[in-house]
Structure formats: C-alpha cells, structure tokens
Design a protein around this nucleic acid. Structure first.
Length: 429
DNA sequence: CCTCGTGATAAGCCAGACGG
DNA sequence: CCGTCTGGCTTATCACGAGG
C-alpha cells in the first residue's frame, strides 16, 4: 500500500527496510555524492556552488530581456509603474519600488502541510540584473544539510527584501520562516514587502479563466505552453522522496524545469497585470473590467472609467454587460446621471439584462430624479416580462417596486383629478 | 413634527481558493 | 493539513422626501 503521508515518507528515508539506522550510512552519503554529480549533468544552467560535502546545489540560468515567455518578452515587465504594484499588492510600500528590484521566488516542498513537517528542498529566485533576467535555484541534497542550504539561500535573499510570488504570502514565505526558525535562524520573510500575484489574478481573470491556479493563468492569460518535460505539482514531493531513497535523479530535472518556469511566469505575469492596470495592453478586453474594479476600489475613479470604457470599446457581447453595469454604477456615484441613464437605457433596449439591474436602475432614475412614475412603472413591467432566468427573490422585488409605483401613480391621478375636477380615475368606464 | 419606506454606505461573517 | 485574502451575503446606520 502506498502511503503518501510526510511522516511515512521520512520514515522510509530514515529507516529503509529495517528500523536500525536513524541517519544515512556513509555509503548512502557517498552514493548521494555520485548521484548529485549525475544531477548536475542533467539539469540546465551553470553550477555556481555545491556547498561543503555536497550539501546543496546552486544553479544559475540567465535570459535576455527579449526572451519571450508566452506572448510577452521578459523585459516588458520593467515598464510597470510602482503605483500599479501598490494597487496590485494592496500595499502602499510597493509604491516605493519597481519590478526591476523585485525578487521573484517559488519554493518546491515535500508537501502542502504548512507545519514543521514540510521541507523546502528547491528554492528558485529570479531577479533583473545587468540587462538580463537571472534565476538562481537552490537545491537541498538531503535533510541533514538544511542548515548549510538555508545559509546559502539567505545570502541570495539578503540585499532585496521585495518579494514577488504566487500564493507565497500564505505558503512559501511562512514555510521558509519556519525552516529558518527550526535551524535557529531568523528570516521573517512574512514581514517583507510582498507582491502576491494570486489575489490580483483572481480579480483580473477569474471571470474568464474559471480557476486561478498559476497553471491556468499561464495558459489562458500568458499563452505559455509547458513542454511535456513539466511535472504536475502534486507529484513533486514524491519525486524528492524517491531521490532521497536512492531512486533515479533524472526525475528531478522536471522539478527544476517546473520551478524555473514558475519563476519566468511570475515575471511576465506581474508585467502583464501592470500593463492592464495602466490600460496599456490586456490579453483579453474583459481583463479591463477587473482592472476598473481595482482602480475603483483604490479611489481612482477617473482611471476606472477609462478601463471600463476600454472594455466596452474592445469587448465582445458577454463583456459588454458587466462593463456597462459597473460603469453605470460608477457614473451614478460620480453624479453623471445623464450618462448613466444612457447606459441603462441601452441595456434595456438591447434586452440584455439577466438580473434586471439596468431595468431597476433606470426605474430608480425615472422615479427619483425625473419624478416620472408612469415611465418608471413601465420599465418595471417590462422587466417582469423579461424571459431571463430570474430568481423568485428578484421577481418579488420587482413586483413590490411595481406595486409601490402604481400606488404613486394612482395617488397622483386622484390628486390631479380633485384639482381640476374634470375626470375621476374611479369613474366607471 | 413624526413616521415610514427607500437608497447609499459601512461593517461583520463565512465559505472557498491556492500553494507542494 | 495550514495560513491569508476575497467576494458575497447579511445587518446596521444615516439621510432624505413624502405623507399624515
């Protein structure tokens, strides 16, 4: 029976077969050295360091700024403005840095459990330096070498405490923090300025990508296609345990590749997001809707309007509705009632209003701004005739609104009837 | 002057998503 | 299994205008 628990995996490593040994034998270590040599040969990039007693590995890969990852060259990321980073990361500290100083990082581990039982065995860190993009990968040769491994890693992290990651705020940073604590060291990555791209990815892309795993975003937003060399994240812990138990090192090549591509994706994704926020470019016009929402939330109403208008100008039909609704609400809040009315009217006339939002807003406008209760009631009646799939709740709200409006109309009619005394509503026909 | 319904905005709570 | 954030949903609060 295959048991995937971390404890079980470590036990297999520490006590292979029998219960005798609590640490790898010298023979194991020797063969570990040989296997590390083999690993060196099958991994891409130049070897910078192997540590004392083959404790770890540092591999470097460099990419020119023209290098295209998906649709976008790596260098384009450098155009991102600091204000955009602050908005994406919801952290004002990021307004003082730019992506050229960012440290793009991703950690491969022995599992998902956040506690002390999970080991970080491969850490990739990318940065822009000297007119290129450089990725260093730190590989832990065995659990007993963690102290040396972390020591080497901390040197690479040292000068640039501005992080870019994917879900790293919850996973990678706290995990490394615990690993350092367990080695009687302090890193406190969790406190560093940190642009975690997961959250803005959800706001910008979720409506069209479904889920927001880095894998999906890569494919649907960046247009990256991973070669068959790549390995699904869920298999990574097992591959490392296999290696620790003396299995073939070649499988680790796919893990290095996976980690490297994650880093490249972080870099291009950060740039792509910034360009959408800045309304320079978007892989899909629908992305401007999310950008508008983020700008709106940040109090940048004018820029939000631009973003929505951009979506409307370039968008397809399905994009049209949400963009119009959001823009309509924004215009109303800004006091541009005339323009808002136009938008509601356009949706009503197009018959595109699955939740009757435009109908209700138009009715509110007619009732409260223009005091035209008859016209308002007409719009609500029209909404009730909409064939769309409306919930009973929405239907009930519409009926209540209509009843109230009809009541108002009736009162007004009675009043005017009393005033001029000519004709009475109550008169039999 | 008071009351009531409505609309706009703020505040609190919880499920779900994501990383290997 | 863990840790953090978000959106959707509910509830509270306030201002306003109409009507009694």
């Amino acid at each position: 029976m295959y048991n995937s628990s971390v404890t079980h995996q470590f036990r297999q490593y520490l006590y292979p077969g029998s219960q005798e040994r609590v640490a790898p034998s010298p023979a194991d270590v020797q063969s570990r050295g040989r296997r590390l040599k083999r690993l060196l040969r099958c991994v891409d990039g130049e070897i910078l360091d192997q540590g004392q007693g083959e404790a770890f590995l540092v591999v470097r890969n460099r990419f020119p700024l023209q290098h295209a990852h998906g649709q976008q060259p790596l260098g384009e990321t450098l155009e991102a403005r600091p204000e955009s980073l602050a908005l994406l990361g919801r952290d004002e500290r990021l307004a003082a840095v730019d992506l050229g100083q960012g440290l793009f990082f991703d950690v491969e581990t022995t599992g998902l459990a956040g506690g002390t039982g999970t080991l970080a065995f491969l850490v990739g860190v990318g940065r822009y330096a000297d007119g290129e993009f450089e990725v260093l990968q730190f590989f832990l040769a065995g659990p007993e070498h963690e102290a040396a491994f972390l020591q080497a890693l901390s040197q690479a992290l040292n000068p640039q405490p501005f992080l870019v990651s994917y879900n790293g705020r919850c996973f990678d940073a706290p995990l490394l923090d615990t690993r350092f604590i367990l080695q009687r060291r302090r890193l406190n990555m969790s406190a560093w300025p940190h642009l975690d791209l997961l959250y803005p990815a959800r706001r910008l892309y979720r409506s069209r990508t479904g889920d927001c795993s880095l894998k999906s975003i890569e494919a649907q937003v960046l247009g990256v296609r991973r070669s068959e060399e790549d390995v699904p994240g869920a298999l990574i812990p097992g591959i490392y345990f296999d290696y620790l138990r003396g299995g073939p090192v070649e499988q680790l090549r796919s893990v290095f590749y996976h980690n490297l591509l994650d880093i490249l994706s972080l870099a291009t994704l950060a740039g792509t997001m910034a360009s959408t926020i800045e309304r320079r470019r978007a892989p899909d016009p629908r992305d401007y809707i999310g950008a508008g929402a983020m700008l709106e939330a940040a109090g940048r109403a004018e820029e939000a309007r631009e973003a929505y208008e951009r979506a409307l100008a370039e968008g397809t039909h399905e994009a049209y509705y949400t963009a119009t609704v959001r823009l309509g609400y924004l215009l109303k809040r800004q006091g541009d009632y005339a323009r808002a009315k136009q938008l509601w009217r356009a949706l009503v006339e197009a018959g595109v209003d699955p939740h009757a939002i435009a109908h209700v807003e138009l009715a509110k406008h007619l009732e409260h701004r223009e005091r035209d209760h008859e016209a308002a009631a007409d719009v609500v009646r029209q909404a009730l005739r909409l064939p769309g799939v409306r919930s009973a709740l929405e239907r009930r709200a519409l009926e209540l609104r209509l009843a109230r409006l009809e009541d108002k109309c009736a009162r007004a009619a009675r009043k005017s009837g009393n005033d001029d005394g000519a004709h009475s509503r109550d008169a039999p026909l």
